[in-house]
Design a binder for these strands. Structure first.
Length: 644
RNA sequence: GCCGAUGUAGCUCAGCGGGAGAGCAACUGAUUCGUAAUCAGUAGGUCGGGGGUUCAAAUCCCCCCAUCGGCUCCA
């Protein structure tokens, strides 16, 4: 007998009794809605037996702990369905994910989309069979024999690595799987699941191991949550920058040019130019000087910098010409060290902040390319700050400040900060690493920025701060990176003369605020779902005459606004108003300026806000004031501005 | 790079051994229009590229390229 406290009341329970019975008979709760029990904070399935006393809490469907259990049980449900449909399948692992689960299986035939539907159907059958899910404990050796007999070699491999003498298995109907649990108490409790996609995955994530077939599914305790997730995925699809990029004519990739190489179309190039000139202005104000450097350099430079030792697999191969060997640049830093070297530097020159929109090329495996987000050629908003050790903290703080300022104007209100420490392969001594790491950490603390440690994720030459912004639908995107480097200055023999007349090596801080401009435009497109704020919109306003007779009035207005540096076009096509508005809406032009007989007679304009469809009539001067406010204030929604 | 899928008109897609098609976009004409699709007509394709099987290939097979979903990788 042990004592279990539930809702403040103690119950005397015999050991060995299953929690299912305890919940039903002792606690008098409806087992149907119970996912699991938490005993002193440890999750136990209803199929587990009572071993010791403690404080019990029931995990209901709505509880946050329920979701992981449901997903894990859904993975078992799918595995069972697959075993029924495909003979000779060998199961690998089937964990829960952020939105559902997956199971890796080894199968002689390759699965197709139709199989997914069949498996899902079979899962529904098993659900309807409402099979009880039982927990079985047995000696490890016995379990090995059992799975070996079933031909489940991956399970055997896993079992052989378990240290415990006793292992737990879960059984539902004819299906049995090695599993720590907990699980829901019957297959009938799994109501909300949907198979998503098929993928290849290496056994244990190692590319030298056999490739298994992975089936992804969504699973939630409740149907509404599943529907919400499906809606979210549709929203993600709607915002896909590749789709919007084509629709809004921002960028293209051409098979004839090559994968991962971006062609910026006029609209995208304009967007990029706006972002660049804003960045340039802000950085100049912050004491940066802009430089330009070439796209290739002698291989020797990359030898000196250490890239050929640590980074070669990401670099394009060498070009041999006139007995010299050249490489296309994967980074800008070595060039900036050479700009530093153009003069004898004194402590009075520091900090020296060299910035460049430097286009770099990195070889990415073909399967990893993805729109603007993963490319082979991209432009970094790069800079290198050369400074004295005593300046380091202030420089990092200044960078963090500049970063926050820039994020705000793109309506990224929240971001997460990661501090990456020394990786396995690194250059330099541990003492420098510790100093650099500490400098980053204290700058974060001084700025009051919360951060997480990312152990071993630093760059080979130093620790770094990575910043990921949260977009408007809650996704994280890596943008800013700030890396401290004691190594490169040493490799290139950089120095400055200090106040005491001694030559000392400077510290170099590598930093990119937006990261890559390609990537950032991709992120922005998804963040804004293609509805760029007024100051960024490639075409800011489209003047639409109601009929051809207002074309000259429309042209007159167009030159009025163009002279005030607004990007305005006139739709002169001989179409109905409805169609012209529709086309403008599809292009996501923020302001539609409708002019008909009435407007022409009164010298006014009817402003229609894209998206919302609201309209408001006003004079050209009033409109100009609104539009200019939208530009200077970086307003997200034009309609949010009230008439001045 | 690996696993799977896809590649047909500018875009979205149907056709899957025997006439290369639809809608939208484009162009021409009619219409002169009041806030998300006016009507009619015209033109548009080496069916991703190459090789093979076949009397005959968009369709079947092989190789390559690109894209998509993953895996791995992402200093």
């Amino acid at each position: 007998m042990v004592s279990i406290v539930y809702k403040g009341k103690p119950y005397e329970i015999p050991t060995g009794r299953r929690f299912q019975d305890v919940v039903r008979d002792n606690f008098k709760e409806n087992v149907e809605d119970v996912i699991a029990v938490s005993l002193d904070g440890v999750l136990l399935g209803l199929a587990s037996s009572v071993e010791h006393g403690g404080e019990a809490k029931i995990i209901w469907k709505d509880d946050p702990e329920a979701v992981g259990i449901v997903r894990h049980s859904s993975a078992h449900l799918m595995a069972q369905a697959i075993k029924r449909l495909f003979k000779g399948v060998r199961l690998a692992i089937g964990p829960a994910t952020d939105t559902g689960f997956y199971y890796d299986v080894d199968l002689d035939v390759s699965l197709g989309q139709e199989d997914l539907a069949r498996i899902e159907e079979e899962m529904a059958h098993i659900r309807d069979e409402n099979l009880p899910i039982e927990r079985i404990e047995m000696p490890r050796e016995e379990a090995i024999k059992l799975f070996d007999g079933m031909g489940e070699r991956y399970k055997v491999e896993l079992l052989k690595e378990i240290i415990d003498d006793t292992v737990s298995l879960y059984r539902q109907g004819e299906f049995i799987d090695l599993c720590r649990g907990p699980h829901v108490s019957s297959t009938g409790m799994l109501r909300a699941f949907k198979l998503e996609s098929l993928a290849g995955a290496y056994w244990r994530g190692n590319e030298h191991n056999p490739m298994l077939q992975r089936i992804y599914g969504l699973a939630f305790p409740k149907e509404e949550q599943l529907q919400e997730q499906i809606a979210f995925l549709e929203e993600v699809k709607r915002r896909d920058h590749r789709r919007l990029g084509a629709q809004l004519e921002l960028f293209a990739v051409s098979e004839k040019v090559g994968g991962g190489l971006i062609l910026w179309l006029p609209n995208g190039a304009l967007l990029r130019e706006l972002i660049e000139s804003d960045l340039k202005a802000r950085q100049k104000r912050a004491g940066y000087q802009f430089v330009n450097t070439p796209h290739v350099a002698l291989s020797e430079l990359w030898r000196t910098s250490g890239h050929l030792d640590f980074y070669e697999q990401s670099m394009f191969p060498a070009m041999e010409l006139e007995g010299a060997s050249y490489r296309v640049k994967p980074m800008n830093c070595p060039f900036h060290t050479q700009i530093y070297e153009q003069r004898v530097r004194s402590y009075r020159d520091l900090p020296l902040r060299l910035a460049e929109f430097g286009t770099v090329y990195r070889f990415e495996r073909s399967g990893t390319l993805h729109g603007l987000l993963r490319v082979r050629g991209f432009t970094q908003d790069d800079a290198h700050v050369f400074c004295k050790p005593s300046d380091l903290g202030a420089e990092i703080e200044a960078i963090l400040g500049l970063m926050g300022e820039i994020y705000r104007q793109y309506h990224f209100d929240r971001y997460e900060v990661f501090l990456s420490t020394r990786p396995e392969r690194y250059v330099g001594d541990e003492k420098s690493w510790d100093m650099a790491t500490q400098a980053l950490e204290s700058a974060l603390k001084a700025k009051g920025i919360a951060y997480q440690i990312d152990p071993g994720e630093g760059v080979f030459y130093g620790p770094k701060i990575d910043v990921k912004v949260l977009d408007s639908i809650g996704r994280l995107w890596q943008c800013t990176t700030i890396q401290v480097d004691f190594n490169l200055p040493e490799r290139f023999g950089l120095s400055y003369t200090d106040g005491d007349g001694v030559r000392k090596p400077p510290i170099m801080v590598h930093r990119a605020l937006l990261g890559s401009l390609e990537r950032f435009v991709g992120i922005l497109t998804e963040h804004y779902a293609g509805y760029f704020p007024f100051w960024l919109a490639p075409v800011q306003a489209l003047i639409v005459p109601v009929s051809q007779s207002q074309v000259s009035y429309a042209r007159e207005l167009a030159s009025f606004f163009s002279e005030k540096d607004l990007r305005v076009q006139v739709d002169e096509t001989d179409e109905r108003l409805g169609l012209k508005i529709r086309r403008s809406e599809l292009k996501k032009i923020p302001a539609i300026l409708v002019v008909g007989k009435k407007e022409e007679a009164s010298g006014t304009i009817s402003l229609r806000f894209a998206g919302s469809g609201q309209t408001r009539t006003m004079s050209r001067e009033q409109l100009l004031a609104i539009l200019w406010t939208a530009v200077t204030s970086r307003t997200k929604e034009l309609s949010a501005l009230s008439v001045g």
